[in-house]
Design a protein around this nucleic acid. Sequence first.
DNA 1: TTACTTAAAAAGAATTATTCTTATATAATA
DNA 2: TATTATATAAGAATAATTCTTTTTAAGTAA
Lengths: 139, 139
Amino acid sequence: MNIDQIREKIASKGLKITPQRVAILEAIYNLNNHPTAENIADYIKISQPNIAIGTIYKVLEILVKNKIIKKVTTEADKMRYDGITEHHHHLYCIECDLIEDYFDEELNQILEQYFAKKKINGFHFKNFVVQINGTFDKC
Amino acid sequence: MNIDQIREKIASKGLKITPQRVAILEAIYNLNNHPTAENIADYIKISQPNIAIGTIYKVLEILVKNKIIKKVTTEADKMRYDGITEHHHHLYCIECDLIEDYFDEELNQILEQYFAKKKINGFHFKNFVVQINGTFDKC
DNA sequence: TTACTTAAAAAGAATTATTCTTATATAATA
DNA sequence: TATTATATAAGAATAATTCTTTTTAAGTAA
């Protein structure tokens, strides 16, 4: 994803293209590991030395609201962000903070099929995310 | 779950039984809706008017560590707690903060079978949780 | 039952993450 | 290029959680 694609992504939602927004979204794509707001701040501080931390949170909120990025929740209480919006799941390391994306079309189909048939009382199903816990060899 | 069972649950992990721990665990069982630390504080303030908020967090941490309760993560950044430790999933309301437990043995079997076969590179599978998003009729 | 030991709780300060407010700056547009 | 609306900076405020120290009480053994 290059700068022009990032700018286009922002513009496509009717949002103003600002250097801060571009830098933050670029950081999320490049860091590629579900960064926290603080991780993003560190990453962009060379290109955006004067950015306010409040701006980062504000921009993240706007990007989430416009479905350009997604929130990823963890048991450590800081929010993390994911630049991938297509349907996928996460591998969580139960020993460290590592989260990896997990794409599995077969799994998606099994579950979509399952929930299509399944009626859950008093609940309108929209979508699902599977949190897969374990340990990475590399950790 | 009565008081004696709660006391026994705490004792079975080799933990000291204290009125605060009993009250907090009782609150989680009775509230039965994935309360926050604050919800628990409100619930127990009649029986435990002098409890320190730090104590609540400390007790929750200990209960989690001893697998008596579990953390439940949400996009709203406050942690919630679940007194049910058997394998289950959660229905999340995408409009309000409601989380309901979802038990589905058929789903568990499908997924356990799936992950038993599936090899995920560089990752040791331990368990999974399905976060099911949608809306409740009652909301 | 009583005294002892150790773990737990209270208090409140400290920290961390996040949000809010207001003045200033800048992007899109006409 | 000027206009207007929106975004950003700054930093204070809030909210959630953790930490530190002192005090209290649970469990154990005499």
